[in-house]
Amino acid sequence: MSAILSITDLRKSYEGGFEALKGVNLEIEAGEILALLGPNGAGKTTLISTVCGITTATSGSVKVDGHCILDDFRAARSLIGLVPQEINLEPFEKVINSVRFSRGLFGKAKNEPLIEDILRKLSLWDKRNSQIKELSGGMKRRVLIAKALAHEPRVLFLDEPTAGVDVELRKDMWDVVQELKEQGVTIILTTHYIEEAEAIADRVGVIAAGEILLVKDKDELMTQLGKKQLCVHLSAPVSEIPASLAPHALEMSSDGAALIYTYDTKAERTGITALLNDVAAAGLVLADVSTRQSSLEDIFVGLVSGEKS
């Protein structure tokens, strides 16, 4: 696969000196889904806005399929679709006209079957002649997606597309994203929902304070940085962790009925056998044993708070 989006040393400073992007470098491969995670104010939206031409970069370069977003803006922008974070829509326009407008704005000839297909996939076909102001919040977000897809982009930016929408739409969205990926569309998604990144992304990028902290294959990231916890449920609660178990650095549940052991899945020795032997030697009786893999959210929180596991 080749890079369809190349961002090199991208910087953005606003009037007043606030530096929203501090030299971002990012290569996004054609056909992948990249989830960009970051806390509020990390620079996610600024990054997207700069690539799409809404914000002007202070320095650095962005190329979309080899086309510079400044020198060759027509070719670059023609390839990009954007679903903004805010629900920005002309309230008095009909749904279908709004989507047709988006296609026309990108210089694409009329294609009614395509518009119908997009609207049907997003469950908007029945609402095509409704004014946008009559739609619910979730429906309006679907319209934004339909508008972004109307000119058949090869790169789609979804800026927190499922923020504040119900579970049904979120699942629909994920299906649409998967379908677009199958068609070869590259998708860059910013989200606060880690489960979303976990469910649909190929790679995960973490951005904080205007800097990309890491970009990694999602599975690799989870394997490398993921910690696993072994929970030893006791048949009788304890008031404190026996001294003989201190080397295992256990945590105790608040009711004293379980001991939690954190270990590294990639380590040569996990220490589980020794732990279980020591638990038995301490005279504790096991009722059950369970394990839990740390989620992307745990990794994300760890990274952003500077712990880096």
């Binding site: 799409c52 031409g53 809404i54 070719a75 903004p84 920005n88 829509l89 704005l105 990108f106 210089g107």
Partner: peptide
Amino acid sequence: GTIYELLSAP
């Protein structure tokens, strides 16, 4: 806010 569409269009 719909100006985003104009600014990001070719």
